[in-house]
Nucleic acid binder design. Structure first.
Lengths: 154, 154
DNA sequence: AGCACATAGTGAGTGTGCGTCACGATCTCG
DNA sequence: CGAGATCGTGACGCACACTCACTATGTGCT
């Protein structure tokens, strides 16, 4: 019956999840970064200089948590806090030169990683895998899962 | 070029990782469990009553961490600590009735989840997805990643 | 203008997960 | 029997996430 094969496939997916988490966490630790801090950096890269509030919303995390993350990133020299030009309550978080360089390096690594996973894979296989992944991600979304889950229907 | 498509596929994989982590964490929290405690429960189910040392090795964490996890699971009534019959230093961790029932229920849920992901998927699509997942898991292993990473070549 | 209310960020305190180091109790082996 | 390994834990530190209380500020309404 299909049950068994589906469970086996789920096992592979879960194993993939574990493996990837491990790999990312470890390679990040080498640069003195933690997963959460890195996620913040990644978000900052795609938004440009932002207030902590904006980062909190983007990460789906409390404002207090962002304070702590930025504290750490500032102490290790990845980002700076500067006063917001028009809102004196707010702070703008921006990359330092070093922070920008590290994020750029991470993008490179990501490309290398993609190559490790898919490089030289047969066209058919890749196409089908890509489509299959798309389908299960869609199914999860349809089931109510979102990457940014903070949203409440008003 | 293939670069772009590989990156897109990696994105899907990473999204899948995030989505699954979220879903599992949330559904676990409902039963008063945390991810780490659940992992311990899961291991315990496949090994039967074990010493904390054995659990630490199986989970790839320190003995101290297991003490903490078992503290929590004992306080919430999922497992019990009992003296080891032959080694008076050691403690045997076993399920309570409730613990065993919850783990059994989780197995059921997992099957339902597999159905959500794969149920009714076309035979071709599923087969190819399964094979593709197997390939990238293998590649990760070949690159030196393991689920139980504590092992050192002597 | 003035006051009520919302918002930005932070201090304080809590819970969980993970680690190391030091330690007592115990096993094992020469 | 005594040296050394092993089992579990107390003490302590760090990362992360949360809530609550609070200050400083912005906004809007009358």
């Amino acid at each position: 019956m299909a049950e068994q094969r589906h469970l086996a496939a789920l096992d592979r997916v879960l194993e993939l999840v574990v493996l990837l988490n491990k790999d990312m966490t470890e390679s990040l630790a080498k640069e003195g970064l933690t997963p959460s801090r890195t996620t913040l950096l990644w978000l900052l890269r795609s938004t440009g200089p932002s207030t902590q509030r904006a980062l909190a919303d983007g990460l789906g995390v409390s404002a207090r948590t962002v304070t702590g993350l930025v504290d750490g990133l500032e102490a290790t020299g990845f980002v700076t806090r500067r006063p917001h030009p028009t809102d004196r309550r707010a702070l703008l978080v921006s990359f330092t030169e070093r922070g920008a360089a590290v994020v750029a390096a991470m993008e490179q690594e990501q490309a290398g990683f993609a190559d490790l996973l898919f490089g030289g894979m047969s066209e058919d296989r890749f196409e089908c895998l890509h489509a299959g992944l798309g389908e299960i991600v869609d199914r999860l979304r349809a089931a109510g899962l979102t990457t940014t889950p903070g949203e409440e229907p008003s």
